[in-house]
Design a protein around this nucleic acid. Structure first.
Length: 96
DNA sequence: GATCTGACTTCGA
DNA sequence: ATCGAAGCCAGAT
């Protein structure tokens, strides 16, 4: 069922605690997605009711068009970005 | 149906 | 550090 994967991705993103961030690859692996691309696609479709701003790219930088928005939202949660890149080793969410 | 596009990642040069 | 190519999924044209 594709819908299950869809919801699983949303669930994984929603599971990210505040003040923490995760990469697309992490969400993909966590949700069982075969490719991180699905994460971005799902967020663009249903990323309205979930903390999509806690999802960053592999190098710690948000998407090009959302970079400004991301940094602002994250800043409000206590996640300070070093200029344009976020310290993944500091803020990266790790599932227990 | 085929083609393009898009919140991506990873490797090699 | 920068660039290009390949792999991958779903929706839109």
């Amino acid at each position: 069922m594709d819908e299950e994967l869809h919801e699983r991705i949303r669930d994984a993103v929603t599971t990210i605690p505040p003040g923490t961030v995760a990469t697309y690859g992490d969400i993909a692996a966590l949700a069982g997605a075969s490719t991180p691309r699905l994460i971005g696609r799902v967020l663009s479709e249903d990323g309205a009711d979930i903390p999509w701003h806690r999802v960053l790219r592999a190098n710690g930088t948000p998407a090009p068009h959302l970079v400004h928005r991301q940094l602002e939202l994250l800043r409000g949660e206590g996640v300070l970005a070093d200029g344009q890149r976020i310290d993944l080793r500091t803020y990266r969410w790790r599932p227990e």
